[in-house]
Amino acid sequence: MSRFQFPESIASRPVYGTLEPRPGKAHLMIADAEGAEALLDLAVRDPALVRAAHIIYIPKGTGESYVPRLEMCGPAQFHVAPSYEASVPRLRRVLTDAHMGLQLYLAGTEGLMGQAMSEAIEHGLPQRSIQREHRGSVARRMQCVHCKGITEDVTTDPFVCAHCGLHLFVRDHYSRRLAAFQGVRVDAEDPGNVPDPVELYQ
C-alpha cells in the first residue's frame, strides 16, 4: 500500500489530499514512482479526464511497473522522464504556454510535488488549481541551512548533508519556495555527539 498518514504537524508543513477530477481547459499530471497509483485511481473515476491529460511520469525506482498501465489510460501526451531535473525544461515549456483554466495534478513523493508546485506558482498558476496526493516514499528533500545545499530523498534523522558533510537534524519547517524542509546541524552545541540515525516516522 503506497498511502501514508502523516502525523499532525506545524503550520508550514504541507498537507496532502486525494486527487479529484476537476473541470478545466487543460490537465497536466506529474507523478513519480508510486504516484502513478494516484493517477490510475483518477483514471478509474474519470477516464475521459486522463485521456485529455498531459502526463509527465518519473518512475524512479519502480522501473516499468507502472508505465504500461499509465499508457493504457490513453493520455493525450505521455512523457516518461528519467529524473525530475530532466523533466524541468519540458515542464517549463508547458507552463509558459498554459492558459487560464489549467488544472495541475501532482502525485508521489513530497520532493517531486513541492518542486513542481513551486515551478507552477512561479509561472503564475493559482494555488487553487493545484492538487497534491502523496504516495510512496516518505523521504524528504532537505535544505542545509548552513551551506544551502539540497539533499534529496532523505529517509533518516539525522542525516549527512550531501554538500558540506555536516550531520543535520530534520525539521518539519518547510519552505514552499525551496520545496524543501530545513536541516540544522544536530551536534552544534556538542560537536561530535551525533545520535544514531533513525528512519523518519519510526
Binding site: 506545524i10 508550514s12 519547517h173 518547510y174 519556495r177
Partner: peptide, 11 residues
Amino acid sequence: IGMNFFEWHAP
C-alpha cells in the same frame, strides 16, 4: 522568504 504569517511562525 515568501511564507505567510502562520507559516513563518510555525516553529
